[in-house]
Write a protein that binds this DNA or RNA. Structure first.
Lengths: 107, 107
DNA sequence: TGAACATATGAACAATCATTCATATGTTGC
DNA sequence: GCAACATATGAATGATTGTTCATATGTTCA
């Protein structure tokens, strides 16, 4: 099911400190409601910064800062098309992680 | 696969603001390496505070504070047995969420 | 080239948060 | 009751971080 099945099942011992730090850093990306909203918005369509700003009713600057953070974590990618820059989720793991989180919340 | 399948697949629209905040709050619990290490340690066995303190080489107080936070989020539970208090993961979602995170990291 | 638009970025500020230190609470056995 | 042990808790502090404001970069079109 998971590449990290041995982790879910608790076998093979504790990973290295650095890996657990990386894991915490990954979850940090999902630990802010603005970033979660951005990723959620990107689940359906590619969007430009202004689309997201108005969808979340937030400043262009705030969104831009967060997109940069998400990009540095390789969770979103972008492409330029003239003046506008289109953002998208980098891969399906984002969807999986969010869905898994919802599973816990919706119980 | 998931209770929140419609989320993973991106159908049914955007959840309420409060839900996305709750989601961010959940991931906040995994966004600190100390807490991740604690949860990891609890994957195999029930442990008491002192067990965890020495396993992570951290202060009893620091661990106790984090355990309180994890407990308030219903991610860990405990039971008293004389002087010692045993902690355990509340349910398997914790393992699933961590495993999912590792899937992304280990790519 | 210059104006208009879209996005990025740096500095500053307020808020959040993890750890430490000191101390309190709770439990056991004598 | 009292000492010894196990854990919890409150206040203080240093570090991290999200947003804002002002401004810079980059692109198009006339």
């Amino acid at each position: 099911m998971h590449d990290a099945e041995h982790i879910r099942t608790g076998t093979k011992g504790m990973p290295k400190d650095e890996q657990l730090s990386d894991l915490a850093d990954l979850f940090k990306m999902f630990a802010d409601s603005t970033r979660v909203k951005i990723m959620f918005a990107l689940m359906e369509n590619e969007l430009c910064v202004r689309d997201i700003s108005s969808a979340l009713n937030m400043t262009q600057s705030a969104i831009s800062h967060q997109l940069k953070i998400l990009k540095s974590a390789n969770l979103v990618s972008n492409r330029r098309e003239g003046k506008t820059i289109w953002y998208r989720l980098s891969d399906d793991h984002v969807k999986s992680i969010i869905a898994q989180g919802f599973d816990h919340i919706l119980e």
